[in-house]
Design a protein around this nucleic acid. Structure first.
Lengths: 210, 210, 210, 210
DNA sequence: CATGAATGAGGTTTCATTCAT
DNA sequence: TATGAATGAAACCTCATTCAT
């Protein structure tokens, strides 16, 4: 099921030439800009192309359809976040819980808030049904990374690791998303990492089965 | 600002006759069904009317435009959830934290999972820009209820009540949403209340300033 | 041809009861008001009924369709103007040209400017194709009246009476309409009768074949 | 004020390629044809496009909405007439009244009757409210041209030039319009210039203040 | 007779996508 | 390869008219 969709959404040609790479990038950038300024509703391929400084025809040389463009943009973003979490996890093997949480939360929040408006804009895109799979994949990737890290914790052992990883991730995502979507004031955003630390660390310690 | 938007989304006539009431209800129901089966993308006023068993014209007698229909459906849902939380909060004044969390989490999860598919469908709707305000309002309502309850806790005192309420709510919303959107297996859904209890209670105790 | 149309546009029932008469009148009045405030474009039978304080259903008891309403309104107006011209003409038989023109011009302008905005609104209605016939009829009626008067002029004899009547009428109508449609300032409207006197009298004297 | 309206009615893109020019022209032509055969009432963008041999989409690439198409058609026509009058006026500076009237009347009637049916069709369009401004502009343009000419008359001097120009124009427009709208027989149309000569010249001579 | 909810054909407009240049 | 004019299916919404109450 997912494969059929996936195929239809893959970029049309793997850009090898420098020019092509530029085009692909410029289209993604234009999409995000328009998403931010006008929202999904107003996002048309023509406008994306226009903003990107290429013709619609050219856009369609690199993406088979509009969904593919959105798919690419979202994928790029989810990738960055997933990688941030994976990197954080990879570096914390064997450490005590407190350090794990600290570093992972920091990595996640930083990745999500690096471009606040991009994140905000993409929540809209993600709601576009076909992307559910993509979001799910990124979630799975991050939960796996978290689980692989948690299993090595110096000071903890978890009975139901999948559930714990799930809750850990969701506990980070929930408040972060709430702040981004709710346009929280900077004061709250600044406090976010600390709050997530408290939230997640206490949860994990409480779930510690040792 | 919000008022202009609000006006354009208000139902056109408040149905008084029995026949009209049925119509309004039937349209909401049809919208949810279609949202579930085909998603926002495929949701057209014609199809909603068709499924509802009325003509498009009739639909437009009660709602000035498509957005208004979605607005109404979402509002109804958010109302139910907000009321559930408010009710739970109202009943726990003066109780110790443990009981508060237990009851509130239970109320929230029950409201959200009463109609799992409806909740799921509406995340998509909420992403439709104009509803942001509505979601924000529901959030504010629930945070207020939580704050008003927490301030009376028998065994706790909080320094930054707004932040604590925000995190409390977001900590419930995050994992719940993750499960609903990710189509989590029943086994996980069953475990959700317990997990949220652990997550929220430990957070609140840790933030306790007494 | 005209008869078929005519039949479809006739009021449905000749109102004999007092109540009915009121309804018919109130609908005409409402139509004119809406025409003035919002123009043809926005004129719907529902709105007319609403403004008239009756239900759409009732409106359709007296008029077979929307066109018939407009037809009635226009007819009433054209009738008033035609009657004014006919009356003026009838009273001037045997008089010299100067007096004829004076009285006819006065009668015409007065009828047209009695309710300036009504006249203005009805130009729009008249443009609605099926009314062309009605306008033509009124024109014919007035030209006949003018011809019948002119033929008795004490001091003139006309070779081509139809043409002269045609021009006489058109010479009155042209500037009057230009002023009404162009929203001419009162100063110009006040001067209109005098100007038409000059225009028409000189024309007629010049066409005098004696 | 008028600018807002004007903007919404301006053509969308100025056609540069040969293909585009053809399209724009073909749409205007189709509009006039349909106006003539079926009247405003039946004029739909779909039908215009169909008759023009292009798709609706193409039509909307050049005109932002239906009104804009009508606007363009009317503008073109009014332009032609205005230019004819201006040209006639420009050529008669310093001439005696008789010649002025002769040439101007001839120019006006010729422009209006060059395509009798087009003129006829456009009276309907002009009644469509938003065009009022356009008609008013054309009127002002022609009255200005007339005034500028009359002020140079070799044998006349006018006290109230604006009023005289207004009446002069309206005296030409009235009968011409009456004939076109009333579908006057060719015999009358042929006689029109002469009649207008008599009508206007006598009026002007009578208003001569020297 | 009056009401006004319901109807649905039909109008306007958009926009993803193609393809001749 | 890039372009952007053309396409036309399909979306939204209105409103004249009917008919059950």
């Amino acid at each position: 099921m997912g494969h059929v969709i996936a195929k239809a959404l893959q970029p049309r040609k793997t850009p090898v030439q420098a020019r092509s790479l530029v085009t692909v990038d410029v289209v993604c950038e234009a999409t995000i800009q328009l998403l931010l300024s006008d929202g999904m509703r107003q996002l048309t391929t023509t406008r994306v192309a226009e903003r990107a400084g290429v013709s619609v025809g050219t856009l369609y040389q690199y993406y088979p359809n509009k969904q593919a463009v959105l798919y690419a943009v979202l994928q790029r973003h989810l990738n960055q976040v997933s990688e941030a979490v994976e990197a954080a996890c990879a570096g914390q093997c064997g450490k005590p819980l407190r350090e794990m949480v600290e570093v992972v939360v920091h990595g996640f929040v930083e990745a999500k808030t690096a471009r606040v408006d991009e994140s905000r804009a993409l929540y809209e895109v993600a709601a576009d049904l076909n992307a559910a799979e993509l979001v799910a994949d990124a979630g799975k990737r991050m939960r796996t990374a978290l689980a692989n890290m948690l299993v090595t914790a110096a000071d903890a052992r978890f009975v139901d690791l999948p559930m714990v990883s799930f809750m850990f991730l969701a506990a980070m995502v929930g408040p972060t998303r709430a702040m981004l979507e709710g346009a929280a004031p900077p004061r709250m955003l600044d406090a976010l990492p600390n709050q997530l630390n408290v939230l997640c660390l206490n949860y994990l310690q409480s779930m510690n089965g040792t």
